[in-house]
């Protein structure tokens, strides 16, 4: 391999990560634009559809993600203070929260399907135009977000293994930092999804 490939530039790695996060935000931005346009066109139908989402699951998942964002940030601090065990524990908790989020999401989707609320379903075909669009966007946006939760979980698990093997250490924390940044992105996107879809009255 080209030896210059091994040079370390923490600042550069961080810059690259931020650029990547920008591109992710813009990708979700496309979905939010579609949401905004259809919300403007069908405000009443969107509000009706939004009321059918479960505030219980939504709020639960918001709490989970916010907490996990905190723990991953604490894991980074713990690593910088050389407290390896604490760092690993906090990372483990974050990954657990990612798993719980997905379980919740699965239960929530399952319940929606039980209530015949999915694009193309009998109920939505008969509902006023706009409700089906709402649920189409809901599944697409939360589905894409769910994929990012999975990616985030995988990335953090990999980071955890690296920390255990001593490849990510206090003087070289960039991998953990970038993994945490990615997890914050997952959190931030949810912070927009939650009010837009669940708190729409």
């Amino acid at each position: 391999m080209n030896p210059s490939a091994q040079h370390q530039d923490a600042e550069g790695a961080r810059l690259g990560m931020w650029l990547f996060l920008f591109s992710e935000l813009l990708m979700f931005g496309g979905l939010f634009v579609v949401f905004a346009v259809y919300l403007q066109r069908y405000p009443a139908q969107f509000a009706d559809a939004g009321r059918q989402l479960s505030l219980f699951f939504g709020t639960g998942n918001t709490v989970l993600l916010l907490t996990s964002s905190l723990t991953v940030a604490l894991a980074f601090e713990a690593l910088r203070q050389n407290r390896q065990r604490l760092c690993q524990g906090l990372l483990g908790f974050t990954i657990l929260a990612a798993g719980l989020f997905l379980v919740n999401k699965g239960l929530e989707w399952h319940a929606k399907f039980q209530h015949d609320l999915y694009p193309g379903s009998q109920t939505l075909r008969q509902a006023p135009a706009g409700q089906e669009l709402f649920f189409g966007l809901y599944y697409l946006t939360t589905g894409l977000h769910g994929l990012h939760v999975i990616f985030g979980g995988v990335i953090l698990s990999w980071v955890l293994v690296q920390v255990r093997q001593g490849r990510i250490i206090a003087t070289r924390p960039t991998m953990l930092e970038n993994g945490a940044l990615y997890w914050h992105l997952v959190d931030v996107i949810w912070i927009f999804i939650f009010p837009l879809y669940y708190l729409l009255l």
Partner: peptide, 11 residues
């Protein structure tokens, strides 16, 4: 999903 299907309210 029919998000762009005019018959289903899309644009």
């Amino acid at each position: 999903l029919g998000l762009f299907d005019a018959a289903r309210g899309g644009d």
